[in-house]
Design a protein around this nucleic acid. Structure first.
Lengths: 242, 242
DNA sequence: CGCACTCTTGAAAGTTGTCAACTCTCGTGG
DNA sequence: CCACGAGAGTTGACAACTTTCAAGAGTGCG
């Protein structure tokens, strides 16, 4: 199986719950109809009325919101294996949109498909519940990050989190991973200007913590980066209590 | 019935779903055993192992997190009628604590009581689900607020939200409500210094938008305040879709 | 090759934080 | 009844952080 065909969604579920082979196959089967979406396109537009319900197989995307004055705030990243809105039985209010940050391969599911999947496999359902909880904890963590830390720590924390999440789905090799997020997007994520993001990245490089060239990020000193960012990954590794 | 005895929790549920009288009585009955907690005390400590599961009847509280360097970030306010952690069937990870911002009257529930309540009344269960969704939307809104708006708009938005939420539980009279949150706490909420919060409040007063004296906040020009803050309360008024 | 997008840089301005002191209010104890 | 002390609000001067504006350099793709 070519690397690009690895089912990151299955992989993510397996990092949260243990799946029987049959459950895994079930998950594989549901993901046959994949869409290709170019970078910068909306996967779920602001005026979406029917709910998103998608799974990201390849590429990066983000949940964001436009503000008065032309600014934009990114409120979450979606990396391969992540899902969006899979559990919500509610008119979404549609105050947020989802945009592809890179070219993306994704699966859009009908409500019936989601409920069928959850009914056929309680373990998958549990995994989705956990994923949703982690998503919420991550949101809280971002609030703490943006509200409480200066630029250097803030960006460092973002990288720590990305590193951790990408490891969970097998996208980190030798402390190196693809980081195709532009500095403009990082700025809209961290609540900083792109110019300041640029200077902050330079400082992280100068301190020997990371190497960032093209779209490839290398963590040179993970320990030091964690300390700088005060990174405590507990929120990313919740597990079922029962 | 004295004003202080109004059941704000019931009132909040009724703003989300329509409750039969029997459901309402059921809610009333569960809230007999109320605790009094003084200001500044932890309602749910960081090291809490058994989950919070509480309902706030009177007073203000906040969910917060301590950061390296002595800073503190508040991630949510609890006002009368709000609940905490009622729906979570998961070890909470306990990376957050809940503190009373004022003297507080609250109810702590056992897991069994919560599930019994939800089983006996599907409408109450639905209300709790909605409340949880609103909580999450509010969290996202705070991220947007802190990440994307300058101090003046940020504080203004906070007040718009408080105004709206307190109206929902009948705690606003003639554009005036009790606002017992100190400037230090506002600072930890907005990611600003207390000195800057002070100056920002003065600017809001100077512009004739609010009057703030003692613990009483008056909205002098709600329209203008909403415009300044770019306040769109959609996120606070989700309703059941089905 | 040339365009579009991204990254980088410098200088100046604006916003926000820090420090330190002073005032005000209110509840407690003398 | 008044003095006291703790917590909260206010102020000024200064420093630090971050943004804005503007321009140039690098990169990849049609």
């Amino acid at each position: 199986m070519p690397a690009s065909k690895i089912n990151r969604f299955r992989r993510k579920l397996e990092s949260l719950v243990s799946l029987a082979t049959t459950d895994g196959d079930l998950v594989d089967r549901i993901l046959t109809q994949q869409d290709l979406v170019p970078a910068r396109a909306d996967l779920v537009p602001h005026d979406d009325r029917e709910g998103g319900r998608l799974i990201l197989m390849e590429g990066f995307a983000c949940r964001y919101r436009n503000l008065a004055g032309g600014r934009r705030q990114i409120t979450a990243y979606l990396v391969p294996g992540d899902s969006y809105d899979l559990d919500v039985a509610l008119e979404s209010g549609a105050d947020h949109a989802v945009m592809a940050l890179t070219a993306v391969r994704s699966v859009r599911l009908a409500p019936a498909e989601v409920s069928a999947l959850k009914e056929e496999s309680p373990d998958v359902a549990e995994g989705l519940r956990l994923a949703e909880r982690i998503e919420e904890a991550t949101l809280r963590e971002w609030l703490v990050n943006i509200g409480g830390r200066p630029a250097l720590e803030r960006i460092a924390h973002l990288f720590c989190e990305l590193d951790w999440r990408l490891q969970a789905v097998g996208l980190v090799e030798q402390d190196r991973f693809e980081m195709p997020i532009t500095q403009y997007d990082l700025a809209d994520t961290a609540g900083l200007s792109s110019v300041h993001v640029n200077r902050t990245l330079q400082e992280l490089r100068r301190q020997g913590l990371i190497a960032l060239a093209g779209r490839s990020l290398t963590i040179l000193d993970r320990m030091a980066l964690h300390v700088l960012a005060d990174f405590q990954p507990r929120y990313l590794c919740l597990h079922a209590s029962v």
